[in-house]
């Protein structure tokens, strides 16, 4: 139990005050998330337009998506956001070991999401729902627009998975740093900043799930 070690941020040499440094970090992350949002928005918009122009094909394709895996994954990611919030709260209190446990739980939930997603891809592969594989005939050949929707599904979920994977890697690296004493005294705001990114990945999934799975059923 390491209740209440000192909490703070070590000043980098090019900043004048700690406040300035923290402000810069938060603003930087928000700016980054804004560009990420635009990146995903383009994909979701294309998926929605496709739904408007080819409703039947998109429905046919969406019927093959594993709704329940998607739904469970949504719950898993929301849970990981909760544990991340817990880690942030504990970091503010200076409870470094508790925080590390919550961070590990977050990483575990993220990994669970990826495992479920991987299983879903595997099932898709079995059902011949990977139209971009040239050696595996696509199940819905009679509906070319459905092929496009399924491909967009892979681009969007793949890009999201890549973000999650990056997030887990950063989280584990940070957990390693945080397992040494004195982390919170020097780098508390890293947890806060990373929390923003993690919640953002969660948010993207919360938009992706209805756009890809639910709206088209």
């Amino acid at each position: 139990m390491s209740g209440g070690t000192s909490v703070g941020v070590r000043l980098a040499s090019h900043f004048a005050t700690v406040e300035q440094q923290k402000h810069a970090a938060v603003l930087g992350m928000w700016a980054w998330l804004l560009t990420e949002l635009l990146l995903f928005a383009g994909l979701f918009l294309t998926a929605l337009i496709l739904r408007l122009t080819h409703p039947e094909a998109v429905q046919a394709a969406a019927r093959h998506l594993k709704f329940w895996i998607g739904a469970v994954n949504t719950v898993v990611l929301i849970g990981s956001s909760l544990t991340m919030s817990g880690a942030i709260q504990l970091s503010r209190l200076g409870w470094q070991r508790g925080m590390v446990r919550f961070m590990l739980a977050t990483a575990a939930l993220g990994t669970l999401f990826l495992a479920l997603k991987g299983y879903e891809y595997y099932a898709d592969y079995h059902e011949h729902m990977m139209p971009f594989l040239s050696d595996r005939p696509y199940a819905l050949t009679d509906s070319p627009p459905s092929r496009l929707f399924v491909n967009l599904y892979y681009v969007a979920t793949g890009l999201h998975g890549l973000h999650l994977l990056t997030g887990i890697a950063i989280l584990l690296a940070m957990t390693r740093q945080a397992s040494r004493p004195g982390f919170l005294a020097a780098h508390q705001n890293r947890i806060e900043i990373f929390g923003l990114y993690w919640h953002f990945i969660d948010l993207i999934w919360i938009v992706a799930f209805p756009t890809l799975y639910v709206l088209n059923r």
């Binding site: 383009g42 294309t46 971009f132 070319p144 627009p145 496009l148 491909n151 967009l152 890009l159």
Partner: peptide
């Protein structure tokens, strides 16, 4: 996004820019 889709279109023929697939 546009270039990623273009790469995917060229490499995997995903169809976003191909009228044959809507």
């Amino acid at each position: 996004v546009a270039l990623v889709l273009l790469i995917a279109e060229r490499a995997f023929h995903i169809g976003v820019f191909d009228p044959a697939y809507g």
